[in-house]
Design a protein around this nucleic acid. Structure first.
Lengths: 95, 95
DNA sequence: CTTATATTTAGATATTTGTCTAAATATCTG
DNA sequence: CAGATATTTAGACAAATATCTAAATATAAG
């Protein structure tokens, strides 16, 4: 699957968008995130994997905990894709 | 399914993003679009329905043909969602 | 009215996806 | 080391998805 496609797939699920939204406020441990979502930690872990595969989040082990952080640099990529989809048709070299 | 979610789901499929991309160059009939994608017209019609449900495309009958057009106004919505996901945390009333 | 063309709908099927439970791994503490 | 806590992995399963073929609908042309 193309890197672009992994991002779209990752963003297509509401739980994963919720995870991104909660990480917007700052990095959190897997457990702290899990406390905010009504599903098992195993299910959340599955979503974490998909977000990591899309490089939307990064992880760092801190003792027993694993801290998740939002990788905001991917925003640029997503924005570029959106412009490609909806933006002006830039067929010509000059305007 | 929430309106927002219908948009995300619609954008998650590469064929549908391809349809959006081809419509960026201008409106086209269902048949003209179908000529560009290696699948049956029935399958394409399925994708058209999903794009219509998300209000990403509009249709107009012209004789035997049905003309599909891109609804660019949804770009604003998608951009807003993206900012909500990745943009600055605007918890406070004042900056 | 009949035939041809354009498109959609209906129904079937294989694959993917989101969730769960149970088990495994990793780290800390005594 | 042994037990407790945190997180992930493995495997199963129901629901959703993308695709196909065949049939239905709508319009145009003779």
């Amino acid at each position: 699957m193309s890197p672009q496609q992994t991002v779209w797939k990752a963003l297509a699920d509401p739980t994963r968008r919720g995870i991104i939204r909660t990480l917007k406020a700052g990095s959190k441990t897997a457990g702290a995130i899990a406390d905010e979502f009504p599903m098992t930690r195993a299910s959340l872990s599955h979503h974490f994997n998909i977000l990591k595969a899309a490089d939307l989040v990064r992880t760092e082990r801190r003792g027993q905990h694993i801290v998740y952080s939002l990788n905001t640099s991917v925003l640029d990529d997503v924005a570029a894709i959106l412009m490609d989809l909806f933006g002006p048709d830039d067929k010509d070299d000059k305007e």
